[in-house]
Nucleic acid binder design. Structure first.
Lengths: 117, 117
DNA sequence: TTGGTATTTCAAATTATCTTAAAATTTTCT
DNA sequence: AGAAAATTTTAAGATAATTTGAAATACCAA
């Protein structure tokens, strides 16, 4: 703990088991990295729009393209970001790929897509 | 809707009021931008660590520095990202600045800092 | 097998985010 | 007033994310 710091905060920390005590309740480096990756993936309006659309309707890429109005290659990139974060999955059906939310993705979508930040 | 697309998906969309019907349930551009900004701010392990620490203890910058072990100027930058997203606030007290979660920040911290992505 | 459609991949160019060190600001203490 | 501490700001450079368009894949249909 810093030699100089506000007394009330020093007391607060000590009551909670010191810095180490508090840090036990903070997720590990690896956990934080996973969480950060998920939040980064959600950190773009286009990708959020995709997530919120998939929340109500699974979709081929061709339909998503009408939802977000961007070229295929760009869309594909953003889908890969969401997929790498574990939020969506793509399943090949005929010569379409159908994207849908994973259980993780659904959890975040329910929290995020229902208005009021 | 695309001329060619899987029939089951076309039916799903039509049952839900067509593309427009579905898109009514998707947050507006402005809302998505706000949400994206919040998620972006959470999209970094260092910043998540700060959020999870503040969840249990409000703190001066000097203490946070020991939590994240980075130079002041870098820390200050990351605090500004969190502040601009509306997740934390800083209040000047003596010649310290005490950072704490906003209600919004607390909401996200509770969801995020309790393990299991 | 030929051709068409849906989608992804790649590499280059662009843009945004992050880091660094130094200088500036604000407040307190003497 | 002057010095010292806590923190932020700035501007530059470094790194990472995104966009673009062309080419590659994979699958289906004739």
């Amino acid at each position: 703990m810093p030699p100089r710091m506000p007394e009330d905060i020093r007391r607060g920390v000590e009551e909670k088991g010191g810095l180490e005590g508090i840090l036990l309740n903070v997720p590990s480096k690896k956990e934080l990295e996973t969480l950060a990756k998920i939040h980064s993936a959600l950190g773009d309006p286009l990708r959020l729009r995709i997530i919120c659309f998939l929340r109500v309707q699974e979709s081929c890429v061709c339909l998503l393209r009408e939802v977000v109005k961007i070229p295929y290659s760009k869309l594909s990139y953003h889908l890969s970001v969401l997929k790498n974060a574990g939020l969506i999955r793509g399943e090949k059906r005929a010569n379409f790929i159908i994207y849908s939310l994973t259980p993780l993705g659904r959890k975040y979508a329910e929290d995020t897509c229902r208005r009021k930040p």
